[in-house]
Amino acid sequence: MRAMILKEFRELRRDRRTMAMLVIMPIVLLTIFGYAANFSVDEISTAVVGDSADAVESQLPDLFVPLDAADIPDESPEDLVRDNVADVVIDTSTTPPTAYLDGSSLFMAQTADAALGRLGPDAITIDILFNPDLETSAVMVPALIGLILTFIGTIITSIGLVKERQNGTIEQLAVMPLKPTDVIIGKIAPYFILASLDMVIITLLGVWIFDVPFNGSVWLFAAGGAIFLFVVLGLGVLISTASQTQAQAIQLAIMMLLPQVLLSGFIFPLESMPEAIAWIGRVLPLTYFVQISQGIMLRGADFSSLWLPFVVLIGMAVVIFTAAVLRFRRDLAPTRHSKKAGK
């Protein structure tokens, strides 16, 4: 038995990825969880509009951080919330003033609802938009669509690609008269199609079973999903190029998946995290897909208010997918050959 334990430790010591999962991951997870796992909202950006804005603003609790009047576009209060100008918009032209809350930001809306409720029903009317009953499922389902696509894109795709390497058939593909791009597109297209079908099925189930509203453009949602799929499929291909076995691919994919689950803002609000941890969240693709899916499904947001997450995801898709294709191509056609290699 002693020999068996010793052999196991020796093998583990040389398996750097497993060692990283065993030693570094718990430390990283604990640190990130410790800082990120924070549901409390300390600041709520608030746009106060109407004639009595200054008077109402001065009576608001410190939790509500008012925007400068110059930064508030001339739109209806609902549109200001829909376009994410502020989390809360208080319209002082009504009596009593009406506070419009963004129900798609669950924890913020709950916090604002409680704080404003304490002012009394005569002081302010509260109107929660987009998710009036503050249903958790309404916020979670759009984000879960992204999480499931991430799962398929990274884990399933990387396993499928590594299988080819593990079985030695990638070399067979490389010696067939196929262009590297034929192989890459041929390998990825089925996963893209399956993940797209999954996206449709999950979205429909979310709408039918959990009554999640779908207020925005289906086409804009499909475009966001397609761009996000390119990002996660690219990640899957990248993982496969850095893995020799399916087990290695799964390890790497989990390392990619976990931070996205924790730091993309759909469980813990990014606004509640310390800035350094929130920045990790801001470089993760799921963060931007969650903004797009929640924005379109719940708020019915259009491209003019979602252009930023779209642009970031397109940038990520271009960079990650290009890197993935180049690395995959290197496996298939290591270098170009000239007739004379030189002597």
Binding site: E171, A174, V175, P177, L178, H337, K339, A341, G342, K343
Partner: peptide, 24 residues
């Protein structure tokens, strides 16, 4: 087979450098 480039020397498949057309 064209999976690895030679460091030096001359390699021809069907009278040409290893290529996709040659592999067919």
């Amino acid at each position: 087979l064209g999976l690895l480039p030679p460091t030096s020397g001359d390699l021809e498949l069907f009278g040409d450098a290893p290529s996709r057309a040659g592999r067919a």
